[in-house]
Simulated assay, not measured.
Amino acid sequence: MGWIILIVVVVLIVALVLWGIGAYNGLVALRNRVKNGWAQIDVQLKQRADLIPNLVETVKGYAGHESQVLTQVTAARAGVVAAAQSGDVARRMQSENELSRALFNLQATAEAYPQLQANQNFMDLQGQLKELESKIAYARQFYNDVVLKYNTRIETVPTNIVAGMGHFEQAQYFQVDEAAREAPQVKF
């Protein structure tokens, strides 16, 4: 009878250890997917940042007196570059939201110039930007979906015990700030 109890206890301990290893490995895999999701967003954002100087120069040729809008875009892009170099994800997200608002203003400004709308270079750049914005939106959705799974796993019982012992921290969602939700007012 004593051997049976000992065997049951050993089996339970082994099962508990195996479950702990599986839970830890699952959390590591999700954390790595979160990092990968952010890296995918980063690639798209870098491409957008590289496209912006060409877009600004093209618009500047037709709408040079709209210097405030062009300055906003240039400053927002500089903020994105600085935030990317800092490695601070929250700062990067905020900078990207500011850049999105500035680009929206730039596109609204460009609509007032029919000759610019007919410029093939501008149309190509605008098409590339539109395509990149779609890719960024998809990458953000993927990233936020993975963050949801990861954060849920960290918070739910019983993996929250392993998450606490392994020092797993919640990931931040890539959210649009309140100012970006409002349509900017463009006045001429």
Rank of each mutant, 00 (worst) to 15 (best):
9 V>L: 14
15 A>V: 13
5 I>A: 14
151 N>P: 08
147 V>C: 05
97 N>Q: 07
42 D>P: 07
146 V>L: 03
133 E>S: 06
24 Y>L: 12
147 V>K: 04
41 I>Q: 05
33 R>G: 09
31 R>D: 15
106 L>G: 00
128 Q>I: 00
86 S>F: 05
105 N>S: 14
98 E>Q: 15
139 A>I: 00
90 A>P: 13
175 Q>H: 15
1 M>D: 08
110 A>T: 08
115 Q>E: 15
80 V>T: 14
32 N>M: 12
115 Q>Y: 00
39 A>N: 14
18 L>W: 09
4 I>K: 12
29 A>L: 14
36 N>F: 11
160 N>L: 05
134 S>R: 05
185 Q>C: 06
35 K>F: 03
17 V>M: 09
188 F>S: 07
124 D>L: 10
107 Q>F: 07
5 I>V: 15
65 H>F: 14
9 V>F: 10
5 I>C: 10
148 L>A: 14
69 V>L: 04
147 V>I: 06
41 I>F: 01
176 V>F: 09
184 P>L: 08
114 P>I: 04
112 A>Y: 01
122 F>E: 08
14 V>C: 12
140 R>G: 04
186 V>S: 10
84 A>K: 15
82 A>L: 11
50 D>N: 10
78 A>F: 03
50 D>M: 02
52 I>A: 10
32 N>T: 13
74 T>G: 02
120 Q>G: 03
35 K>Y: 02
108 A>K: 13
24 Y>I: 13
137 A>S: 12
17 V>H: 03
184 P>D: 07
12 L>Y: 02
13 I>Q: 08
150 Y>M: 08
10 V>S: 10
13 I>R: 08
17 V>D: 04
184 P>M: 08
127 G>H: 06
86 S>P: 08
98 E>I: 09
53 P>I: 07
187 K>P: 10
34 V>H: 00
39 A>P: 05
81 V>C: 09
170 Q>P: 02
157 V>W: 14
143 Y>D: 02
182 E>K: 15
68 Q>A: 13
178 E>D: 14
166 G>W: 13
44 Q>H: 09
179 A>S: 15
156 T>P: 01
174 F>S: 09
121 N>G: 06
103 L>E: 01
33 R>M: 12
80 V>G: 04
164 G>P: 09
113 Y>Q: 01
39 A>Y: 04
31 R>S: 14
23 A>D: 09
100 S>K: 06
57 E>S: 12
142 F>P: 02
153 R>E: 15
186 V>W: 08
16 L>Y: 03
171 A>K: 04
166 G>C: 13
178 E>F: 00
57 E>H: 07
75 A>N: 13
34 V>A: 02
60 K>T: 05
63 A>G: 12
179 A>T: 11
132 L>W: 00
161 I>G: 02
4 I>C: 04
